[in-house]
Every structure is written in C-alpha cells, then in structure tokens.
C-alpha cells in the first residue's frame, strides 16, 4: 500500500508490497486525498519497496501525473527497483520526464 509524508510543499508517497488492479484504487484514493488537502508543488512516488507491479501501477502513475498537473504541481517517480524496470520501459513513462 502506501505511507505518505508532507514537508516543504512536497508530498512523498512511499509505496510498498504489491500493486495490482485490486490494490491500486486504494493507493490512488490515499494519494489524491493527501494532495487535494496539501496542494503540494511536487508529488514524489517512491517505488523502492514495491515487490510486484503489473500495468495497474502504470495506470496509477499516469493518473497521478494528470491529477498533480491539474493542481499545478510536478510528479517525480523515484527508486524503481530492477524487477520493475521492464514494465516502466515498456510503458514509455520516461517520455513524460517524471523518472528520476
């Protein structure tokens, strides 16, 4: 799921465990509620502790990109582990310039 912190205009969402179609809507709800409340200039999605992810995780990132853009903020995706690199590359998300 997700642990969130807010500091100096930045929401950091530390994702952990498995991200699939069953889990993604709950993570989305938590992140969006925090961002609507805090109105951050930056949303950081930290994938360091994610053990498994299918394309639901890609949908989650794309949706958060849209959400934070509408709020006038920027998205950053950090700490993508080696086992998730393949699906991130396939998704073409690096073209959005959000992968750090």
């Amino acid at each position: 799921m997700v642990d969130m912190t807010y500091k100096n205009g930045v929401v950091t969402a530390k994702l952990y465990g498995e991200i699939d179609h069953h889990i993604a809507p709950r993570i989305r709800g938590d992140i969006d509620a925090q961002c609507e409340h805090s109105r951050p200039s930056r949303l950081v999605l930290d994938f360091g502790k994610v053990g498994f992810m299918d394309s639901s995780g890609i949908g989650l990132v794309m949706g958060r990109y849209r959400m934070i853009s509408l709020l006038g903020g920027k998205l950053e995706v950090v700490n993508v582990p080696p086992n998730l690199q393949k699906i991130f590359v396939l998704s073409g998300l690096e073209k959005l310039g959000v992968m750090k």
Partner: peptide
C-alpha cells in the same frame, strides 16, 4: 473508464 493503462496485452506479449 477506470484508470487502466491499456497495456495488458502489450505486457503479456513482451513478458
């Protein structure tokens, strides 16, 4: 209409 990336079959074919 949900947040689906539309990548399901692309992932299957790639993996």
């Amino acid at each position: 209409t949900d947040e689906r990336a539309g990548l399901g079959f692309a992932v299957m074919q790639s993996f």
